[in-house]
Amino acid sequence: MRAHILPAKAVCECGSREFKPYPLPSTGKLVNFTVLYSVPVEFEKMKPLVIGIVDLGGVKVVGQIVDCMD
């Protein structure tokens, strides 16, 4: 069985402990996002932050969306 997993784990939910690094595609689909105005202290000077979920071909990444035109 093969699955792509993020974040990294020691054991997959399927029971396997064998993993190989896998290059994710550099483009994906934005499936959800929010514009966050109330931010943690390190981000005070960067607010607002755009936080989104991007689907990179089966693996979804949660993070900041940056360098995008509004």
């Binding site: 959800n32 966050l36 900041q64």
Partner: peptide, 21 residues
């Protein structure tokens, strides 16, 4: 998950907002 979420600015409010959407 601080290593993968909090570190990048994700907060519980941001998570709730996406759930609301």
């Amino acid at each position: 998950d601080y290593e993968y979420e909090g570190f990048f600015g994700v907060t519980p409010a941001a998570q709730a907002a996406m759930a609301m959407k």
